[in-house]
Amino acid sequence: MTNTMLLSWATFLYFGAFVFYLFRLVFRKEFWGQGAFYTVIGGLGAHTLSMLLRWKESYALGFGHAPLSNFYESLIFFAWALILLYVIVEWRIKDRSLGVFVLPAAFLLLAFASLTPSISNRIQALVPALQSNWLTSHVVACFLGYAAFTVAFAIGIMYFLRNIPLFGFIPEGETLNELLYQHAVLGFVFLTLGIMTGSVWAHYAWGSYWSWDPKETWSLITWLIYAVMLHARYVRGWKGDRMAVLGVNYLPGLHSYLQS
């Protein structure tokens, strides 16, 4: 299977990029930073190609569905969204210090997906309940949201580490705050969209748009916590530590996903 081959390449390249980002910090040469960025781009290319190939293969097998149907494929997409978001951020804010925190996450996600024996990487047929475009949009929106929350999480960690001398490369607190907020907002919008598309799917597949099952409830809890965060910041100007703590709160959502 060529799609898994390409994916191994992507995993390898992400790991390489992580090492280069580390070198950049140790040797303080932008050369390494540039190398790391191009390596990430290469990895993203292989990753994208791998997903497209998998899509095509599913058609060749006669199932014909987007590669977003099971846990393995979701993890792969999650890592992809994370890297894509990271590339956009690095390109827009012209700061590479986030790389050391985000790339290991993507690398570990891919390694976890490929190496855990209980996670099957077979292309499977979809049972009728899952044959829905709403479900595909739901998965896409949720994982884009999780990717944004993961970046917010990484920024939250950076915020706590920024005063330790070893981490002198971290940008100043104000910049981090702004970035954290923007990613939380992005995640919030995608999470909202994810909950909505999920409800539409449930409406068509099960007959009720909301049934308070634990997965749904946890997504609502995550959503509510972010709503609290938005209000706290907007109205009372909460910043700094408390925001960073809230930035770390994406765990409940993810937890609920893994639980299912």
């Binding site: 634990p214 409830t217 946890w218 609502l220 809890i221 509510l224 709503a227 609290v228 209000h231 109205v235």
Partner: peptide, 20 residues
């Protein structure tokens, strides 16, 4: 008061957690 909002949302989070 937006403090009320925050309190209510927090209570809802707690209630939902109880519900799961």
């Amino acid at each position: 008061s937006v403090y009320l909002t925050i309190t209510l949302l927090a209570l809802m989070v707690i209630l939902s957690i109880v519900g799961t």
